[in-house]
Amino acid sequence: MKYIKLLIAVPFIGFLGLLPWANRIEPYILGMPFLLFWLVLWMVISPLLLTIVYKFDPDNKEGETE
């Protein structure tokens, strides 16, 4: 699972890469104009991705003391 850390790049590519498409007011989602919702969506996706990275990251198994 050496390449699991590549998932870190996903929020950058997803959020910023699709920004021109997401830069719109309609549809409103959860009461927010779409662009704002898009931002919130990626703030929620990112921790999920990082949780996956953390689980499979070999660096966390080196027995570091907490």
Binding site: P11, F15, M43, V53
Partner: peptide, 9 residues
């Protein structure tokens, strides 16, 4: 938030 994501690395 992207800074936090990047920081992991």
């Amino acid at each position: 938030f992207l800074a936090y994501v990047l920081s992991y690395w």
